[in-house]
Every structure is written in C-alpha cells, then in structure tokens.
C-alpha cells in the first residue's frame, strides 16, 4: 500500500494545536476591538481573526488528518482547486454586491 502512516505523536500535536485555536477563537469573539482600537470599523477585526483561525484549523486538518502533506501533487492540486473555485464564486458574486451602489 502506498498510503503514508503518520505517527500518532503527530496526530496528538495537531489535535493540541486545534484545541488551542478553538479556545482562542471563542475567547477572541468576546474582545471588543471596536472600543479598543481608535478607528471606525475596527469591529471587522473580530471577523478577520475568526476567519484566520478557522482557515488555520482547516489547514491543520487537511494537511495532517487528511494526509495532504504526505500526498501526491495531484491531491494538492485538487484540494487547491476546490478552494480556488469557491473563491471565484465568492469573489465574482461579491463584485456585484460591493459595486452595485456606485452608480446610483
């Protein structure tokens, strides 16, 4: 079999990292960046941080639990293609909504 056997200690470390990020994301959700930082719209920092943490957690799961780190380039290509196509869907749809009010 060509499958790569990942040592258990790697799984445990990844799981520990996931739990740390999990606690972090809940904690940060209660931090009021709007009042901590001097500029308006600082509340968006909550969303940015939450998404950054979510992407990190997803990356850990994909790379280690789903073995992409040890997989062929083809698997990388498919994983990345999925993300890119979702980005296309989001970006071009939002390009409509973000610019719709420019011409009114």
């Amino acid at each position: 079999m060509s499958a790569h056997v990942v040592p258990i200690r790697v799984y445990m470390r990844v799981f520990a990292a996931l739990m740390v990020l999990f606690v972090l994301t809940v904690a940060i959700a209660f931090v009021d960046f709007q009042h901590l930082l001097p500029f308006t719209g600082a509340a968006i920092i909550n969303d940015i941080v939450a998404l950054l943490i979510a992407f990190s957690k997803a990356a850990l799961v994909i790379l280690f639990f789903m073995h992409v780190r040890y997989s062929s380039r083809l698997t990388w290509l498919f994983a990345i293609a999925g993300a890119v196509w979702l980005a296309i869907l989001l970006a071009l749809t939002l390009s409509d909504y973000f610019t719709r009010h420019w011409l009114t």
């Binding site: 499958a3 994301t25 959700a29 509340a43 939450a50 943490i53 979510a54 799961v61 639990f65 789903m66």
Partner: peptide, 28 residues
C-alpha cells in the same frame, strides 16, 4: 477507512467555519 476518514474530516471542516460565522458574531 482512509477515504471515509477524508469525508469525515471534511464534514468537520465545514463545521469549523459554521461555528465562528454563525455562533461567534456580535458577541461584543
């Protein structure tokens, strides 16, 4: 087991995004 595992992890990843986007907004 491996490929079912891939599926299970994917379902987990969906939740990793659902959780902050649905539960963790507007708490401040």
């Amino acid at each position: 087991v491996e490929i079912t595992g891939l599926y299970w992890h994917f379902v987990d990843i969906v939740w990793i995004f659902v959780f902050p986007l649905y539960y963790l907004i507007g708490l401040t």
